[in-house]
Design a protein around this nucleic acid. Sequence first.
DNA 1: CGACAAGTTGATGTTACTCAAAAGTGGTGG
DNA 2: CCACCACTTTTGAGTAACATCAACTTGTCG
Lengths: 242, 242
Amino acid sequence: MVADLKPTRITEPALLRLSSLAALDACEMDALDQAAQRRSLLPGHREILPGGEARRGRHILLRGWAYRVRLLADGRRQILGFLLPGDLFGGDRQGSHVALNSVMSMTPVETCPAPAANQGDDGLAEAYAISGTIDEYYTYRQIVRLGRLSALERIADWLLEMHERLSANGLAENSTFPLPLTQEIMADTLGLTSVHVNRMLQTLRRNGLAKLTGGTATILDKERLSSLADVRPAHYTRSELI
Amino acid sequence: MVADLKPTRITEPALLRLSSLAALDACEMDALDQAAQRRSLLPGHREILPGGEARRGRHILLRGWAYRVRLLADGRRQILGFLLPGDLFGGDRQGSHVALNSVMSMTPVETCPAPAANQGDDGLAEAYAISGTIDEYYTYRQIVRLGRLSALERIADWLLEMHERLSANGLAENSTFPLPLTQEIMADTLGLTSVHVNRMLQTLRRNGLAKLTGGTATILDKERLSSLADVRPAHYTRSELI
DNA sequence: CGACAAGTTGATGTTACTCAAAAGTGGTGG
DNA sequence: CCACCACTTTTGAGTAACATCAACTTGTCG
């Protein structure tokens, strides 16, 4: 009686998020849970997916933060985007044996291989596809940010994005969320210098829009922050997205 | 005897490029060729894939140029990337009914629906996947360009990219290739103003690196142009230039 | 406590933007 | 063929945004 209806055995927060993207059957849930058993642990500030040569197959980030990055010959660095728990990485579409850029852990991370999606109408395949679409959305958003927003707007927009993503993963409490990164990392994400990021953050704090202290960010006035970033309300884009 | 070995019936240049990405069987070649019969024609400067609501399914750009674009509320515009003959668009990964941004034609274009890829080890599916990976590569490259390259470097890098892509499609002759766009479009691609683009183009011309006239671009000194974009130490490249 | 990383501040420099107008370009119709 | 139009490219002068350089302060962790 009871045996049949144990509903979700998934305990890992990251997997909850991933499994929420599409309807998964019990078998797929199990596959996810199994995969999470074979997790690998890595310290912070390590390359977890070397650029140039691919670690075969798709992986799931279970815990911690990571980022895609590209280094220029003269030392300049551009961070392409962040990976949060529940995000997929690696497994660059088949045919390419080249990882396009490297993935670094920012904090200690736990990863596991992503269970293979079966042929046909597979819930997992759909979840992966949607995850990919979301990735694409944020990648394009990053382009707009870098190309057409001012420094202050970039920071505002990016903070809202981080909040939005962490909320979706259950990692934010209201308007406060962890942000375990230095101003230099932010600078390399937003195409600025760390000095300028610092000054802009002060502007946000002075005006009561947001504050960042000790690895934690708080959005104090979402309204005005949004109007700064010119971004439509997040719920509009996201709800339509999923 | 002869009937069996008619090799490739594909005549459309755009399809040649697409079919070169993976090994297609005769059946798939035919499917492509069939699809190209049902082409639609659109004038320049039209929205061919409205943002917000998706025209169902994946499409192939057969002729002409198009671009992905996002408009901000105050009129600013960021071009995310270009679509050249042989490129795929639309058909945002299944599950999302939202095109993340709009696609506009820049010149008159011809498009056709992309034949569905079958399950399993399908050559078409692989070609589509590889095409997607290539797209991703250029998208990340755009981020690096906007985030960490100077105006001159952005233009140099972008010109090389255009040359590379058009060569791959057989649309460039040596170092000369069509570039049917205004300096304002370039500006909105590279996160600059058209005035500044104009000045930087003059710099390139004055130094014999590249020239753009009347919808045609010529790369005059690929070596130095690459070294500019490829980004060795900034002072080195700069002193050589001005 | 000492050392090292991160954050903060000030002064100065440079890149790219803004505004405005002139000079080219191509297409259209008289 | 010319005159006209709209659009694009080019030029100049002044300015704003962000970078650079260098020091100083704060925090953290052994």
